[in-house]
Amino acid sequence: MQSASDLDLHAQLKNIIPEQQERLKKLKSVHGKVYLGNITVDMVIGGMRGMTGLLWETSLLDPDEGIRFRGLSIPECQKVLPAATPGGEPLPEGLLWLLLTGKVPSKEQVDALSKDLRSRAKIPGSK
C-alpha cells in the first residue's frame, strides 16, 4: 500500500522541483555561454525574451513515431497509464502526473489526484 505522500502530487513535486532547479543551475554554469545559433543557453533558461524557442522536456515530436510524453509514445502511454476501465483510454490525470513528475503513476495515485481536483472544482455562480 502506498503512503499518503506517495498519493499526493504536491508532495511528489516538492521532491522533484529542487532536483530540477539544481540540474538547471548546473547546466547554466557549465554551458550558459554556449551559443545555439545566435542564442545562448542563458537566454533559453532566462525567459526567452526577444527570441522564438522553448526549453520543454516533457514531450518530444519524433518524425517517425509521433509525439512522445516523457519518452513514451502514445501507444506506450495507452498500455502503462491507468484507465477508467480495463483496456480503455488512459485517464487525463495519469498523463498529467506523468508530464509533471516523469513517472508513470499508479491507479491509486491517479485516483487521489482525481479526488483532489474534484474537491477544488467550483462552478461559477454555484454555492
Results as ranks from 00 to 15, higher is better:
62 D>T: 06
127 K>W: 13
119 S>F: 07
115 K>A: 11
40 T>W: 02
109 Q>C: 06
38 N>E: 07
19 E>K: 15
85 T>C: 05
64 D>H: 14
88 G>M: 06
39 I>R: 10
56 W>R: 10
56 W>P: 01
50 G>F: 04
121 A>E: 13
45 I>M: 00
72 L>Q: 05
5 S>R: 12
76 E>D: 06
82 P>S: 01
11 A>T: 07
27 L>P: 01
108 E>G: 10
95 L>V: 14
16 I>W: 03
76 E>I: 00
101 T>A: 00
83 A>K: 05
76 E>W: 02
50 G>M: 01
9 L>K: 05
99 L>Q: 12
37 G>Q: 07
125 G>N: 07
4 A>F: 13
12 Q>G: 13
114 S>M: 14
97 W>T: 00
31 H>R: 10
93 E>A: 09
113 L>W: 03
54 L>R: 15
125 G>H: 08
2 Q>I: 07
35 Y>W: 06
57 E>P: 09
110 V>A: 12
101 T>Y: 02
122 K>E: 14
24 L>E: 05
92 P>D: 05
113 L>F: 11
16 I>E: 02
22 E>L: 10
24 L>G: 03
53 G>S: 01
118 R>K: 15
63 P>H: 08
52 T>C: 07
103 K>T: 03
76 E>C: 01
116 D>G: 06
32 G>K: 02
114 S>I: 12
127 K>H: 14
72 L>P: 02
115 K>Y: 06
81 L>Q: 00
